[in-house]
Amino acid sequence: MGENDKQEKGDTKQEYVTIPYAYRSDEVIETKEVTKEWFEHFQQIKRVVDELAEEYQSNPNITRVAYTKNDQKTTGDNPFKVEIELINTESIEEIPDEREGIKIDTVEAKPRYFSREEKKES
């Protein structure tokens, strides 16, 4: 299938695009075909993550802005969501629930490092 091939599924036609799936250094070693709808949503969510990361870069309470799979199994629409990790979840009033139709979740940051003494006490 080419980059923008159409394939019939039942009575509907879906457009597919071929995307890089696996790399070795800078070389693409495997590709994958996805629906054009999925590909466009994926491009949108990457752009939204970049915008939010830029917006909140000076906020010391935010440790990570990333995309992740939606909790629910989805077919087509919005297979991804944005996740914003916060040190203190009490101060989330400024973060929207969604942007451009993409769900935004906030989660509490988990401690990433600990001393040997802290590990022994656990």
Rank of each mutant, 00 (worst) to 15 (best):
R64E: 10
K103C: 03
I102D: 02
N4E: 05
I19W: 05
E55W: 12
K103W: 08
R47S: 07
P79N: 08
K119A: 15
D97V: 04
I102W: 12
E108C: 03
V49C: 14
E3S: 05
E37G: 00
V34N: 03
L52A: 11
Q44P: 01
E51D: 09
D77I: 02
K9A: 05
I104M: 15
E98Y: 10
S25N: 15
K119E: 13
R116D: 02
T12D: 11
I104A: 14
L52E: 07
F114R: 07
D77Y: 05
K9Q: 08
D50N: 15
E30R: 15
K110S: 07
L86Y: 14
Y23C: 09
E93Y: 07
P96T: 12
K120I: 14
K36D: 02
A22M: 10
I29P: 03
V28A: 06
H41S: 07
E8G: 01
T31K: 09
T106R: 04
K103D: 03
T89Y: 02
E37Q: 08
D77N: 12
D105Q: 09
Y23N: 08
Y113F: 13
V82R: 08
I45C: 11
E108L: 07
R112L: 09
F42S: 11
P20F: 01
E33N: 04
R47W: 01
E93F: 02
R47F: 02
D71G: 00
Q57M: 10
N70H: 09
I92W: 03
E117A: 11
E30W: 02
T31W: 05
I62A: 02
R116Y: 10
S25M: 13
E98W: 07
M1Y: 08
R99T: 10
S25W: 10
Q7E: 06
A53E: 15
E90M: 10
G76V: 02
S122P: 00
I19M: 10
E100V: 03
V107G: 06
V49P: 09
Q14S: 01
E30P: 00
Q43A: 06
E98L: 00
I95C: 12
A22L: 10
T89L: 14
I84R: 01
I29V: 15
V48Q: 11
T89V: 15
R64Q: 12
E108G: 15
D97F: 10
V17R: 13
P60N: 04
V107Y: 05
T18M: 10
Y56H: 14
D77C: 02
V28C: 08
V65T: 02
V65S: 02
E3L: 11
V34H: 02
S122L: 13
E37C: 01
K46V: 12
E83V: 13
Q7N: 04
F42N: 13
N70S: 12
D77T: 09
I104V: 14
R99K: 15
A66N: 06
T63M: 00
